[in-house]
């Protein structure tokens, strides 16, 4: 009786086990197929990985999709991907046109909070330390005159490379020689940002700001990095003042968010 029961039990296990293995094989194949298509679709200009993201291949398995980076971001720039992203479901991204990363946390908190280091903090930490050492070594300066936090902060955010902004010459107001007056994204736009010119402590809504520029230069004046990332220069013909993106661009996407044209005329392309 007992032996019979044991055999029955074993048969039941094998029967279920085969069904389970079959299910797993289907799931595995589906994952494999999705994996192939997902690698092509991400990242894109409306799907930037947060600062410090490691290679996309490692990112997809290293990210445990906990959302800690989402929660710590003071401007709520980071979102979790929906089911439409396939295997990227639940991974964090930034859609800069909706809400760009404006560095108003000052210390790359999303990177620091990531437990699995798919947002890798180490290079930023090293960059910060190096910058402080360099500032202290300059003639006439030592640690009593240099504010290490300030130096570190600037060096860390300048080391971010989410992508690089590109200007669309056909739609850019400056390229057309036009100015801009008013509110760049309308009065119901929800995005916030900390303007470099205003000396704010935290970000404020973009809808509350009104600009008046003879030649549109919002992407240049609102850039949190400044002249290392984007400058205004004279076009080749010498008649127009146009924005010019430099290698110091971090790909934060503030320019993309503030650009007043219907379709953004400056767009971050991820590396």
């Amino acid at each position: 009786m007992d032996k019979e029961k044991k055999n029955l039990n074993r048969r039941e296990f094998f029967k279920g086990g085969i069904a389970a293995a079959g299910t797993l094989a289907v799931v595995g194949t589906a994952t494999f197929i999705l994996d192939k298509s997902a690698a092509k679709s991400m990242p894109r200009e409306d799907f930037l990985r947060p600062p410090g993201a490691i290679s996309e291949e490692d990112f997809l398995y290293g990210c445990i999709k906990c959302g800690l980076c989402v929660q710590i971001c003071p401007v709520h720039a980071i979102e979790l991907a929906g089911a439409g992203e396939g295997l990227g479901f639940g991974t964090p991204y930034i859609a800069p046109r909706i809400q760009a990363c404006d560095f108003s946390c000052d210390a790359l908190q999303c990177v620091e909070t990531c437990p699995t280091a798919v947002l890798d903090f180490r290079p930023f930490k090293e960059e910060g330390v190096r910058a402080v050492e360099k500032a202290a070594a300059e003639p006439g300066a030592d640690l009593s005159t240099v504010n290490p936090f300030e130096v570190q902060k600037v060096a860390m955010k300048e080391a971010v490379r989410m992508g690089k902004a590109h200007v669309n010459r056909n739609t850019c107001l400056a390229h057309k020689g036009e100015g801009f007056k008013g509110n760049p994204r309308g009065t119901d736009f929800k995005g916030v940002h900390r303007s470099p010119g205003k000396n704010e402590v935290s970000a404020s809504p973009l809808k509350d700001r009104v600009f008046d520029r003879e030649v549109c230069d919002l992407c240049i004046t609102e850039c949190p990095i400044g002249e290392k990332a984007i400058i205004q220069r004279r076009s080749r013909s010498g008649r127009k003042l146009i924005p010019h993106v430099l290698d110091g661009c971090t790909g934060c996407g503030v320019c993309q968010m503030v650009c007043p044209t219907a379709q953004p005329s400056i767009v971050v392309e991820p590396f």
Binding site: T31, Y61, C63, I64, G90
Partner: peptide
Amino acid sequence: VGFLLLALLTKNLVFENL
């Protein structure tokens, strides 16, 4: 064990999506 193996083979947190 199966989902662990799938993770290894596909280099994805397969189970997390389900």
